[in-house]
Nucleic acid binder design. Sequence first.
DNA 1: GCCAACGTTGGC
DNA 2: GCCAACGTTGGC
Length: 155
Amino acid sequence: MSKCYWLIKSEPDVFSIDDLKKAKNQSTAWDGVRNYQARNFMRDEMQIGDQVFFYHSNATPPGIAGIAEVASEPYPDPSQFNSGSKYFDASSPQDNPRWVLRDFKYVRHLKRFISLDELKQHEALADMRLLARGNRLSIMPVDKAHWQYILKLER
DNA sequence: GCCAACGTTGGC
DNA sequence: GCCAACGTTGGC
């Protein structure tokens, strides 16, 4: 399977790209995904080494802050079994975990932050999934053409 | 804080 | 299987 590109959302007040950079091994387990579509992308389609836009949601302004990469195979999200976690899922079987995650590793900040507002102004990006009406997916694929276009924008 | 959009749940 | 109710996301 050829290399894919992705976008993951995080609220910077909770976990920003600076937090990822400061994390142990500059990587983190991406826990708490509780959406089947996002899980399936992470479980079935990502490949170690895939490049990922790190998007700041619920931010002022929202936008793409940097780049990370897929750093592990999928494995069960431990928070689903932790009754003290807000991600606890009592109905997930221990022997067949419903929720999986991967580790993501810091690659770099973009040379400059590229806001959602700026992305919306480019016709070439008009069909980006991120910009689709009502989009709420926290993990989504990015077309190679869109990826390359955005990397040119940062200059 | 508001609210539109969307996914999930559960009664029927 | 339908769909109303509900909870969450996330831009504004």
